[in-house]
């Protein structure tokens, strides 16, 4: 089933012959401040194919948000490069949506829920009728069909987070970056939203970069899991998730292979927390 999906994707987005959509090479980010410099990201190199789902896990403070901000063109890297669809990223590129970790503060408090979702569509010059449909559908999909006229501050934290997700969904991006997007929702809603992201990914053929603290979630959603080391950050391991693309909350999570992967990633994250560095770097220094 994925073979057909992938075929349609390559025609809809510009890519190289290899099908590479995003390339991060030698990315380094040092935050400079009066109190001294913080090396948040030391050296990250990886690439994603068009339509791939990549999850990123790593200890708190590892620089996951920093990495996403660099990819989104919101933060200039200290050195290294991000290339998206064959163009070096210098500012936010077209066709990208981001769900920020600070979801609540990323909603415009002076706009209603529906207006928040609609604003990016207006700027994309989506026609009015189509805009209405997209707003209604995406709010429906996140279970907020009944509060389009409310303001974000009238909603609970979990509901605000779903508004931010609906805004990204309605935008129909080629590439979707999500930074711990389900942190504030309850377990049941979380499972529903995971399935929403999964179905969106298959339906629209988007490329997904998904940061999470939840190892199960990373394996359930991803085709690959990048495990980051602790700060200064490098890639500890790039774990391929060799599960079938057709996933389901019950069967996938009970799959013995799922359990194996989960143990593997869990051990890696534990090691990262203890300050373990990849062998290549250790021999270098």
């Amino acid at each position: 089933m994925t073979a057909t999906t992938k075929a349609t994707i390559t025609t809809t987005t510009t890519t190289t012959a290899t099908g590479e959509l995003l390339r991060v090479s030698g990315l380094r980010k040092v935050y400079g401040s009066s109190g001294g410099a913080t090396e948040a990201v030391r050296d990250l190199t990886f690439a994603t194919r068009t339509g791939e789902a990549v999850c990123i896990v790593g200890p708190s403070g590892a620089g996951k948000t920093t990495l996403l901000r660099c990819i989104a063109g919101l933060l200039p890297p200290t050195s290294g490069e991000v290339v998206l669809e064959d163009r070096p990223v210098a500012g936010p590129p077209e066709g990208m949506a981001v769900v920020f970790q600070d979801y609540a503060r990323s909603l415009f408090p002076w706009l209603t829920v529906a207006q928040n979702v609609e604003l990016p569509l207006r700027e994309k010059r989506v026609a009015k009728g189509e805009r209405r449909r997209l707003v209604a559908e995406s709010l429906e999909a996140v279970g907020l069909a009944d509060v389009p006229g409310s303001y974000p501050w009238q909603l609970s934290g979990g509901m605000q987070q779903r508004v931010a997700i609906a805004r990204a969904v309605a935008y129909e991006p080629h590439i979707l970056l999500m930074d711990e997007p389900f942190a504030a929702v309850d377990a049941q809603t979380r499972a529903d939203l995971e399935d929403l992201v999964r179905s969106l990914w298959t339906r629209l053929g988007i490329t997904l970069l998904f940061v999470t603290h939840d190892i199960d979630e990373a394996i359930y959603l991803g085709q690959r899991v990048l495990v980051l080391s602790s700060r200064p950050t490098v890639i500890l391991e790039d774990v391929a998730v060799d599960l079938p693309d057709e996933r389901d909350q019950l069967t996938t999570r009970n799959d013995p292979r799922f359990q194996e992967l989960r143990t593997r990633v869990y051990e890696l994250v534990q090691r990262a927390k203890r300050g373990h560095r990849p062998a290549s770097e250790v021999t270098l220094s």
């Binding site: 901000r69 989104a72 063109g73 919101l74 500012g91 936010p92 077209e94 990208m96 949506a97 981001v98 920020f100 600070d102 503060r105 990323s106 909603l107 415009f108 604003l119 990016p120 700027e123 994309k124 805004r167 935008y171």
Partner: peptide, 12 residues
Amino acid sequence: RPLRDTARVYRL
């Protein structure tokens, strides 16, 4: 800052 970032990402 998240509001500014949002405005930039969605290319307002």
